[in-house]
Design a protein around this nucleic acid. Sequence first.
DNA 1: GCAAAAAATGTGAGCGCTCACACTAGTTTG
DNA 2: CAAACTAGTGTGAGCGCTCACATTTTTTGC
Lengths: 344, 344
Amino acid sequence: MNSRVRQRFRDATLDDVAARCGVSYQTVSRVANGSPLVAKETRARILEAIAELNYRPNLAARRLATRRSNVIGMMGTRVTYSGPAKVMIAIEESAKRRGYNLMFAAIERLTDSELGKAIGALREHQVAGLVLAARLKGKIDLIRRLCRGVPFVTLGAGVAPDVPSVVVDEKHGVRAATRHLLDLGHHRIACIAGPPGWPASKDRRHACAQTIRSAGFEPGPCVVGDWSAESGYKAAVQLLESASGRFTAIMAGNDHMALGALRALHANGIPVPGRVSVVGYDNLPESGFFEPPLTTVHHDFAWEGESCVEMLFRAIDRESVEAPFRQVQRPQLVIRSSTAAPGS
Amino acid sequence: MNSRVRQRFRDATLDDVAARCGVSYQTVSRVANGSPLVAKETRARILEAIAELNYRPNLAARRLATRRSNVIGMMGTRVTYSGPAKVMIAIEESAKRRGYNLMFAAIERLTDSELGKAIGALREHQVAGLVLAARLKGKIDLIRRLCRGVPFVTLGAGVAPDVPSVVVDEKHGVRAATRHLLDLGHHRIACIAGPPGWPASKDRRHACAQTIRSAGFEPGPCVVGDWSAESGYKAAVQLLESASGRFTAIMAGNDHMALGALRALHANGIPVPGRVSVVGYDNLPESGFFEPPLTTVHHDFAWEGESCVEMLFRAIDRESVEAPFRQVQRPQLVIRSSTAAPGS
DNA sequence: GCAAAAAATGTGAGCGCTCACACTAGTTTG
DNA sequence: CAAACTAGTGTGAGCGCTCACATTTTTTGC
């Protein structure tokens, strides 16, 4: 009588299958790995035994022997927002299509030590590749050191010219949105920016300011939020108090903040787009149902995830990396009802 | 000269560290595992060498030897919605706190074969435990078979009395919301339900109908959506066309659909809550900024994730499972401005 | 029909770790 | 002061697999 309480169900191994078929474990291994060097009939017999014994290869053993794994790692800042979550799903899906699984490690703050811990944990699992979804600017040397020997792709911000990265040309999107506002006749455009520390915040804000300037106007007042609807609300209130009348449009750093702003304007009896136009960024599935439906920039998160995986596998498959180092997407403007000519 | 293109950087092993310190690999292993049976001075020397060589234990080898891993698996239906994503983040976080990592596997449809594949993939990685976030009703025997030998916790629906599960008492939340509507004087309450196939859809819908009946009224018309804002919009339009005037309030299956409904009412010139009250479910961070701010039921996703992990570890740690099989949360109603007495 | 080539199979070693022990030294104990 | 510990350390085997070969069997060419 075994004394262990929960008698761990022992899984079948190569040897079990081999014994049952009267062949060597190696032959079974060949079948398991799809090698063509097995007689047709033998293969059939073995496949049958595999099914009967419910044999599944022990990945730990395989990994130990090959020093490779079929896991890719993703490190990211807390992704409670819907966007990053979508990216993750897309990554998981396209990795699975290639026979890989995804292991996720979140970091709470962007410190060197958290970065080291997260990447370290992933590396301990011998991930075949890494998707890094965080602001890595200025940390590229650290990253190179941490990832030594493991191919990686960065997501969301060009880190260095020779680092494979998937980037969305946010400036392009914001420029389109700003021009849309300018074309409508707005030239006093306020801005609700994302929190400092996010490359997306800076990029979006700068692109907006630049576009306004190149049209010959001065950028309007700017308040920062933290991506949340609540912060957008507060920012808009602040804008209203400090700069009322000095703007006819608001560029929000994302749709959630735009929603908050919409609410603040409404609560203060300011018609949108009658007196103030609002544009967001991301094009959430629900943005078309805001009040009024939001003009925004469409950000394709699924594309991001897929591109990452594709790029990563280029690096994993060919042992050397010579493929293009950067894949860029230009997001498109989606015009709905939150924008109109000023004073219309 | 080695011919491999990318010379895989060989990581330091126990032996490397041991050689450098003049001790046996076993002693190093003891240090790595925090065994107290090592002389203080030896430990210091070894720790130093570990740091210098940047030694990290090879988890594949450890897993192979121990037949255990420090990975927990999560299987879920595609979690593009913000809720499930939050659950995942919470799981990842509390697992990490216990020294475990998370591997995620999504299923696209709830077929036996997809279920088998996803759980199989996770099992191949020798996960120490499994969080199952999907509708498992009726599939409990299959699940038991698939998970044989691996502790698991189901999330979101009580599957069977003896299956560990974390459930949110959605009926409780919906009852509170419905009573709130009844208290305000509504008794013709329409409903926008979630898609069939989700236990949450049925539970919410039934609880609503039941509460209305027990107050002596008949449940109003009901249309189903798919959780999206768009479907909520369409559902509300349909309600307006087919049953206009036959309801003074709408219970939406979630906040996104409530948002769509809000938009549809607005677009048709129906004041909320003036002529129709609306209540949602989930309490998204942005729901307070809808137009008008939404009365809804708060669903604590982070709690769900944490409870799962806690429960799972109870099963993993004690080898036998005798702990409570179910952990329940009663969500609270959050009253905002989308509800008021009818005709107010 | 027989050597040579090709196909099919088997063998040994080793991946890096942990387990169950065996061993050595110093410490207690009666 | 021998017996019985204890702390600290080392040894052998084995987890389940893959690699690089060695070996056997079958096919092929002339």
